[in-house]
Design a protein around this nucleic acid. Structure first.
Lengths: 214, 214
DNA sequence: TGGATAAAGTTGACAGTATTAATTTAATAG
DNA sequence: CTATTAAATTAATACTGTCAACTTTATCCA
């Protein structure tokens, strides 16, 4: 006796459409270029229509951030080749993270510079999952290297992957924000950073066993 | 034959007043609580008056960021006691940075999460100087440790201080943004991070000379 | 002392924004 | 065909940054 509600799939499709439009605006003009009204204009609907699929702008931004984390996860996964030794995979991972972030500074800023965490609505579960999955790529790689005996950690693998993640993020973050002193390009800093992270994670005995280096 | 312009000092005083009002608003309600109109309301002037001292909101935010960097510089300087050995000073520096940032997450976010760098107006020179001075505290401490023979760097001191800075920032940044996996408190991560940074910066030979360990 | 002058400050206006409420459209079940 | 109701649109409110026109006011000079 009434108009049938949209199926879950249809709703998801509309959400995806809104998200895509928002992302397109974001890529071309940064956060300032993202507004419900512009999104609606791109989609050809009225400016209040998206409210049916996102309770507010915060929710839209959260979804955008989750998407950015998914992208980063893909970038990292694409960089680690199974045939490489675990230690090399860890290096590739760090390099991929850094280069992806620096290559798309706006997207990277969207990921990490979200100041309003948004009180954890139902949709921030998706964001949390996206973050966890991205970090998991890192954690698994660290664990694999340790399991293969190629990495002697001075701390537990989870802590190690957090430190690894934090170090890589710190470097990208500073570069993206233009904080690195002029004249020092990222190419100068990436290799020492990766080496510092790898080396710093290991206990001295591990270093001794393999005579240091790399 | 005309009303005398304000002296440089008077202008600076008004700028400082606006800045202070903006900071107060920021501390209590985040970036959303900062607007020219609210600042003016606090100061008791009309909403367009601040435009005489800041060309726009971006310029105001830049000045706020510079002030935050100056604060961080003071925090770090207060933490390094001259009587401590250089190595200990470096550790204290890192701890101070991390604890200051985590203790005031909003202010920290203001420092590093400024997405709009603002095309470098005349006032962003002050921001650049504030950033440089803060980083210099770190660089000088690293150099002192190296000069005292207490730190055998694997890279040049400037690169080392950048890595140090990046690592500390990465950790704080993740904590502030709530990216660290739940259950892992900062107290768990700070000591390993500091050790990782210190250890990672050193060349293997230096480690050998002092038998490893921090 | 009495304008003239120009800086400092105020007000009004415009274009945008997020968000909510009221309204309209349209599909479908009976 | 009609009642129902989800979806979409429109109207409206309360903000925002920014600029232009206007008013106030302190000073200098005649």
């Amino acid at each position: 006796m009434a108009r049938q509600s949209f199926s879950e799939h249809e709703v998801e499709q509309r959400r995806a459409g809104i998200l895509e439009a928002a992302m397109t605006l974001f890529e071309s003009g940064g956060l300032e270029a993202v507004s419900f009204r512009k999104v609606a204009a791109v989609l050809g609907c009225s400016y209040a229509a998206p409210y049916r699929y996102f309770p507010g702008k915060d929710a839209l931004l959260v979804a955008m951030r989750a998407q950015a984390f998914r992208w980063m996860e893909r970038e990292m996964l694409a960089a680690i080749r199974p045939q490489d030794p675990p230690r090399q995979r860890l290096r590739s991972l760090a390099e991929a993270f850094i280069r992806a972030g620096v290559g798309r500074p706006q997207r990277y800023a969207l990921m990490f510079f979200g100041l309003t965490e948004g009180a954890g609505g139902p949709r921030s579960l998706e964001l949390a999952a996206a973050k966890r999955d991205a970090l998991d790529v890192c954690t698994r790689t660290v664990e694999a290297a340790q399991a293969a005996g190629e990495l002697k950690l001075a701390v537990d693998p989870l802590t190690a992957s957090h430190l690894f993640w934090a170090g890589a993020h710190g470097l990208v973050s500073l570069e993206v924000a233009g904080q690195l002193v002029m004249g020092r390009s990222l190419d100068e800093l990436v290799p020492p950073m990766v080496r510092t992270l790898m080396q710093g994670l290991e206990d001295p005995q591990g270093l001794l066993l393999r005579q240091g280096r790399s």
